[in-house]
């Protein structure tokens, strides 16, 4: 059984932040990752702060300024939300392929982008780089699921599907702490291990995600998300692609290409974007974008298959826009 913890259910953001400020306090949003981490001893909680009864943190608000999604909004609700499905398809699709129906009705968007890594060495209690140790055990061990990009010191892959979609859609994360609120462009939210391998986000202790804001979607913007895993359910991405394209007269006016499952952070491929921008989506252009996307990939002993898999995922996704 999980080690004992104190439990508190504040009913305001201010109280929640007060409670979260204590040493050993951990936030409970949907709880799916928290429960797994506590059970496996990935970390301990002296106090669990439940956000369940904090008002205003759940639900989707659409306006001319875009769409604001409360951090506590369940993934299932995002997956079936009509405005998100139509205007921010990548996010709806990403939310719809997280875990299983049960995990999507419990897991939240805020929790999904803040979940801890799924690297088996990290989860199994190895004193790895992410835990402050000196070794990334994936390098000499089983690295079939690990990074082919951005593996510096730590080679984990970012586990979130929605994080890739939110990056392609240029979202802003609104974080709150006792010092106040800050708006963090999603591209600045995740921390690469080259900067600090012991943290995944820029959130400080006592801070939490309050909501996620999507900018207004241009009329000609379309987006998508697809991932491949070992199974079509439950599993995290081995390789996935979130794409957002603006098309004018058959030409790609603007492209965003962000990969999941291949790097320690959602991995934006500017090279693929450049190969697409200004061009018609012919098989040649798509082929060049796929080649560009994997340029500089640094696979390890067991994960070279991800190079081809990622190209295949991107190619298939691009054909949706043709």
């Amino acid at each position: 059984m999980i080690k004992s913890f104190a439990y508190v259910r504040p009913t305001s953001v201010d109280d929640a932040l007060e409670m979260l400020g204590a040493d050993g306090a951990r936030v409970h949003a949907g709880g799916t990752d928290l429960m797994g981490c506590l059970r496996d001893g990935v970390f301990e909680a002296e106090r669990v702060v439940s956000l369940r009864d904090v008002p205003g943190m759940r639900g989707v608000r659409a306006s001319t300024q875009g769409v604001t999604i409360g951090a506590l909004t369940p993934l299932a609700e995002i997956a079936r939300h009509s405005v998100i499905g139509e205007q921010y398809t990548a996010l709806a699709r990403a939310a719809s392929v997280v875990g299983t129906p049960q995990l999507r009705s419990q897991g939240t968007l805020g929790g999904n982008i803040c979940q801890r890594p799924r690297c088996p060495y990290f989860r199994a209690g190895f004193d790895c780089r992410r835990k402050g140790g000196r070794i990334c055990y994936a390098v000499g061990g089983d690295n079939h699921g690990h990074a082919i990009f951005g593996g510096v010191r730590c080679h984990m892959v970012h586990p979130s599907d929605t994080a890739a979609a939110l990056t392609a859609l240029d979202a802003t994360v609104v974080a709150v702490g006792r010092a106040g609120e800050r708006r963090i462009p999603i591209g600045d939210f995740f921390v690469a291990p080259s900067v600090d391998p012991t943290r995944e986000t820029v959130l400080e202790h006592g801070e939490m995600v309050k909501e996620i804001v999507l900018p207004p979607a241009a009329d000609d913007q379309r987006s998508s998300y697809h991932k491949e895993g070992h199974r079509r359910t439950w599993d995290f991405a081995l390789a996935g692609a979130a794409t957002a394209l603006r098309m004018t007269g058959g030409n790609v006016a603007e492209a965003r290409v962000v990969f999941s499952g291949v790097a320690p952070v959602p991995w934006r491929s500017m090279a693929a974007e450049e190969a697409l921008q200004g061009n018609t989506l012919t098989p040649e252009v798509i082929g060049r974008a796929c080649d560009a996307a994997v340029e500089g990939a640094a696979p390890m002993r067991h994960n070279a298959y991800k190079v081809g898999l990622l190209k295949g995922v991107l190619e298939k996704e691009m054909l949706r826009y043709v």
Partner: peptide, 25 residues
């Protein structure tokens, strides 16, 4: 640990893994 589904119950009509849900929640 939320990896099999044998504990599935409904919470407000939504399917949930009871093993990953705190009773207090």
């Amino acid at each position: 640990r939320g990896e099999c589904g044998a504990c599935t119950v409904l919470v407000d009509d939504q399917p949930r893994y009871a093993c990953l849900t705190l009773a207090v929640e």
